Simulated assay, not measured.
Amino acid sequence: MRGQARLVIAALLLSSSVFGALSADVERLARLLIPALMAHQFASACQSRDPDFASEVGGFPAVEAFSERVRGSVLAGLSPAHARTVLLSAAAAARNAAVSEVRALAHSSADEENRRLDRWCDRSAEPFVRTIIERHEQQQETFRQEIARAKS
């Protein structure tokens, strides 16, 4: 549970620190997209190790579909250039979070590193992915309102 809380906090910190020079609407839209992209990154990393990863939410295909759905909602109606800026900003933050998490698990022993990765997938990544999807499903109206405010 501590690992999951750490990942949620990391997502929030990344979304608040990555956007120094970006306009407010780009920042707000990217912040809405980062958690879904992080869930996709984490699921991608763990699914390659365990094909049953995230089975509680439908496995990797469901996580991928969720990420695409959120991406579509956030980017809908934006100009191609604006959508690209939002997507690249959010993707960079999500990728950096995933790389940081995996690097923290590095070990000189390949066996120990594999054990750490497996533990991280089970104890941190899977609960994070599940929580992000469940929160999104429970708070869809709030999410739509935040998107509308960011685009207005």
Rank of each mutant, 00 (worst) to 15 (best):
A110Q: 10
A98Q: 13
A104L: 09
R103K: 13
W120N: 03
A97P: 03
R115D: 15
D118W: 03
L117A: 09
H107P: 05
N96H: 11
P127F: 08
T131Q: 12
H136Q: 03
R103Y: 11
P127T: 06
H107T: 05
Q139E: 12
R103H: 12
E134W: 05
D111C: 00
I132K: 01
H136N: 04
E137R: 14
E112W: 05
A125T: 02
F128Q: 04
V102C: 04
A98T: 09
P127D: 07
D122F: 08
A106H: 04
L117Q: 10
Q139K: 08
W120S: 12
D118A: 09
S109C: 01
A125S: 12
I132G: 01
N114Q: 15
E101A: 15
R130V: 10
I132Y: 02
R103D: 15
E113M: 14
A106Q: 07
P127R: 07
E126P: 01
Q138M: 05
A97M: 14
E126L: 04
S108Q: 10
R123Y: 10
I132Q: 09
V99L: 14
A97R: 07
E134R: 13
A110R: 13
R115Q: 13
D111M: 12
Q138S: 09
V99N: 10
F128N: 03
H107R: 08
R103V: 11
Q140T: 06
S124I: 11
C121D: 01
A97V: 01
S108T: 13
S100N: 14
A110Y: 03
A125W: 04
S109N: 09
E126N: 10
F128L: 13
H107K: 00
N114C: 05
A104W: 06
V129L: 05
H136S: 05
C121I: 03
E101D: 13
Q140E: 10
N96V: 08
N96F: 14
Q138E: 14
T131W: 06
A106T: 04
I132N: 04
V99Y: 08
D118G: 12
D111H: 08
